[in-house]
């Protein structure tokens, strides 16, 4: 067993985990942050995407012990001061989710994507979200949500 400290959503969190503990399981079951979802556990669906030092990673393909001391942002940490992030607001506004199971992954992916590319073209949006599966929406409103999020971000005071 290993004692690790993860900085999750800005808060240092300690856990005692075996080497094989997946980051997704550690977040969900050791730290009680169940917003991160697990859709395939083999790195294809992207539902488990979290931000590791700001970069999107598959938490189901990451051992918790390998990210000791690192900064992790989960869907629970996207809002600031009780206000939903522009990406979260855009998904609600554009009906970018139905069952909501894949949504945390899309929100984290989109957050990182728009940080890199604040004004993407249609093609770039498709590329940006092409590592996440959704079985409900047919993606059309997700694409719309990403564009809307870019607009909302541009309106935010920096």
């Amino acid at each position: 067993m290993y004692d690790i400290t993860l900085i999750v959503n800005g808060v240092p969190r300690e856990a005692r985990v075996p080497a094989r503990r997946l980051l997704s399981d550690c977040l969900r079951h050791d730290l009680g942050l169940t917003g991160t979802h697990v859709g395939c556990e083999h790195g294809v669906c992207g539902a488990c995407t979290v931000l590791l030092d700001g970069e999107p990673v598959r938490s189901c393909l990451t051992f918790a012990v390998t990210v000791d001391g690192r900064e992790i942002t989960t869907v629970e940490g996207l809002a600031t001061g009780g206000r939903l992030s522009p990406v979260q607001r855009a998904f609600a506004e554009c009906h970018g989710l139905q069952c909501g199971f894949c949504t945390p992954g899309f929100l984290c992916t989109t957050t990182a994507f728009l940080r890199e590319n604040p004004a993407p073209t249609d093609e770039e949006v498709l590329e940006g979200i092409s590592g996440n599966l959704c079985r409900c929406t047919g993606y059309q409103n997700i694409v719309k949500s990403v564009h809307r999020a870019a607009e909302l971000l541009a309106e935010e005071p920096s």
């Binding site: 969900r28 942050l33 169940t34 917003g35 991160t36 979802h37 697990v38 989960t74 869907v75 629970e76 996207l78 809002a79 939903l84 979260q88 998904f91 609600a92 989710l97 909501g100 199971f101 949504t103 945390p104 929100l107």
Partner: peptide, 10 residues
């Protein structure tokens, strides 16, 4: 659902 507060089975 957008804030990670959904309650799915697991």
């Amino acid at each position: 659902l957008i804030s990670g507060q959904g309650r799915y089975l697991d």
